[in-house]
Computed example of a mutant assay.
Amino acid sequence: MKPDTKLRRLNLRIAAIMLSALSLASCNGVMYDEEGDCDPHYKARFIFDMNMLYADAFSKEVNAVTLYLIDPATGDIVWQKSERGDRLRQDGYLMDLDVAPGSYQLLAWCGEGRDEHFA
């Protein structure tokens, strides 16, 4: 085999490897188009296990929940949301939190949902 042929084959292999690498790198945008946005979505999970069985009884005992997010620097309530009903009966209930990223103190007011209030 001539040295010219060996060099040509080596160049073809390098070109094929480079082309493969470039085509894989360019597919990154195509692969994740169906995934949707990459914005963070925060959720809060509620657990009531401070009972005699140390078992999560939230879905059986709580009919209404209000969550307050408090700015630790000012002590002001910056966000609140209340939910009640069948949604709370699901095991592993999660509340969507529509808040900007940051540090917050959370305060949950949970109960039977009969004329309860928190001041």
Results as ranks from 00 to 15, higher is better:
residue 92 G to I: 10
residue 69 L to V: 01
residue 68 Y to W: 04
residue 32 Y to I: 15
residue 74 T to Y: 07
residue 30 V to T: 14
residue 54 Y to L: 08
residue 28 N to W: 11
residue 75 G to E: 07
residue 49 D to S: 09
residue 72 P to T: 08
residue 74 T to S: 12
residue 66 T to P: 02
residue 81 K to Y: 06
residue 36 G to W: 08
residue 77 I to R: 09
residue 35 E to Y: 11
residue 59 S to L: 07
residue 93 Y to F: 15
residue 46 F to Y: 11
residue 52 M to S: 15
residue 92 G to T: 12
residue 81 K to I: 03
residue 89 R to F: 07
residue 57 A to G: 00
residue 45 R to P: 07
residue 32 Y to R: 08
residue 83 E to G: 04
residue 36 G to N: 09
residue 30 V to C: 13
residue 97 L to P: 15
residue 42 Y to F: 13
residue 28 N to G: 12
residue 30 V to M: 05
residue 38 C to G: 15
residue 72 P to M: 06
residue 28 N to C: 10
residue 31 M to K: 08
residue 79 W to R: 05
residue 91 D to M: 08
residue 52 M to W: 01
residue 82 S to K: 12
residue 90 Q to G: 13
residue 56 D to W: 01
residue 37 D to K: 10
residue 85 G to C: 14
residue 41 H to Y: 03
residue 67 L to H: 01
residue 80 Q to S: 14
residue 41 H to T: 02
residue 82 S to Y: 04
residue 90 Q to R: 14
residue 71 D to K: 09
residue 31 M to H: 10
residue 93 Y to E: 11
residue 82 S to N: 08
residue 90 Q to C: 13
residue 46 F to P: 07
residue 56 D to T: 04
residue 53 L to H: 00
residue 74 T to E: 04
residue 45 R to S: 11
residue 54 Y to E: 02
residue 63 N to D: 13
residue 59 S to K: 07
residue 34 E to N: 09
residue 35 E to C: 12
residue 93 Y to R: 12
residue 46 F to L: 10
residue 81 K to A: 08
residue 29 G to K: 09
residue 64 A to C: 08
residue 51 N to L: 07
residue 55 A to I: 01
residue 55 A to N: 09
residue 73 A to L: 07
